[in-house]
Amino acid sequence: MAYNIYICGIGGQGIIKTSIVIGETALSKDMNVVMSEIHGMSQRGGVVSTELKIGEDQSPIIQEGGADLILSFEPVEALRALHKSNKDSIIVTNVSPVLPSTINQQDVDYPEIDEVIKELETKVKKVFAIDANEIANNAGHPLSMNMAMLGAATAISTFPLDKEEVIEMMKNHLPPKSIEINLVAFEEGYNSCV
């Protein structure tokens, strides 16, 4: 068995980096970990997702309904990931939307955020809706958003890695000058989910 984390959002939000920090932390604790990433056209506005499995599994794809935790960097992407969730899953989602670049050419409007969160809440055990963009901006840089999301993940009771261990690994993976800001974002993300 494995603890399955599905991480999703948009190209450029730091999803791969966040996933690598989780994977490296698992390895540092001598846990088995596999991960898969889909980012073919991410630089051009597409969806990015990673699947992380910490535990015995060998395959890097989570079964339908098999995610213990969904970490969504964008609210609509959390809805798009629902097929990976079941009634006992936990969803942590950023509430700051990223409008699709082609939204003006589409027949579908971007949905109301409140409706998105309500919908998520009807599907899974618990939804943590946090404004990770605001946390990042307050911390000092919009690009620290991913570390706010990572901090939030470590606050989830089922998350298999300790906060302090994740922080240590995070420090290894960030440029020294940005560590302070990212630490603030991480802590605020954590606090918003305890």
Partner: peptide, 22 residues
């Protein structure tokens, strides 16, 4: 014994096709 996957949302979702960058 698999978990039953949640059904997809009834809310219509805008798509995110790749586009040429800004």
């Amino acid at each position: 014994n698999r978990h039953t996957p949640n059904e997809m949302s009834s809310i219509q979702l805008p798509s995110r096709p790749a586009t040429l960058c800004s």
